[in-house]
Design a protein around this nucleic acid. Structure first.
Lengths: 128, 128
DNA sequence: TGAACTCTAACGTGGCGTTACTGTCG
DNA sequence: ACGACAGTAACGCCACGTTAGAGTTC
């Protein structure tokens, strides 16, 4: 890190496991913007920014679009700042329900994938 | 079904759970081609074709590209027809190893997704 | 005959990967 | 000062979604 708990994009990419391009893309869309920049224009990320990126990374496997993920982050921010209105809570509950459904899909896909791998394994084994 | 065990694309789409567009796309790429056509040009799929489509659908969650999936189908076909050469077996083993790794990723993603859903659930609950 | 289904062709989209070239940091 | 790292801009790519308009099937 360069200055007082600020990380530049390469370190963040290694830490979180996202490509530099991806992190820049999230900035362009406003999903996760760096808290600051150096005088020369280098992006500077705080620990909180890194946590946001990690959160985005974990929402991706559930098939949420970046726009939806952006919305979730907004909702959580607003909850901490001014509190949630009924419509916000409804929206959050939609995310919970949808997320649950996507987890079920993931479970099914995992089970099927394991069976497919077994099938491929036996195809490779019997033939040798 | 129209004629003797031949299905047209809409029925296949419903049965397999893929969109008509997706099935046509697989045809365009040569990944799964229909066994026949009507005189007017309608695609006709056999049970074997449907099974191939189902197989493709199950390989997708493992992040294989359509080109790679195409290759797997070719390998399994060749195994049944003329048998596999050593290089084919090596390639199949790569698919097995990679598939295994992708299963591990899926397992991790599932666990993380469940934790994320819990976090969202409590955010929606405490606020209400 | 007509309603439902299918066809091809072609452009649009999301989420980045990949140059290409310039500028910044330690 | 120099090598590693970062910046923007813009085009490329995959796997389809989405019209649009014409033809086919039962």
């Amino acid at each position: 890190m360069t200055i007082e708990g600020k990380f530049q994009i390469g370190e963040v990419a290694d830490a979180v496991g996202l490509s530099i391009r991806t992190i820049r893309h999230y900035d362009e869309l406003g999903v996760v913007e760096p808290s600051g920049r150096t005088a020369g224009g280098f992006r500077l990320y705080t620990d909180a920014d890194v946590a946001r990126l990690q959160f985005v990374k974990r929402l991706k496997p559930m098939q949420f679009s970046l726009e939806e993920i952006h919305e979730v982050l907004h909702l959580l921010d607003r909850r901490a700042e001014v509190g949630l209105e009924p419509s916000d809570i409804e929206r959050l509950e939609w995310f919970v329900a949808t997320g649950q459904a996507r987890c079920d899909v993931l479970r099914t896909q995992l089970a099927e994938s394991e069976r497919v791998v077994e099938r491929l394994r036996s195809a490779a084994a019997v033939a040798s």
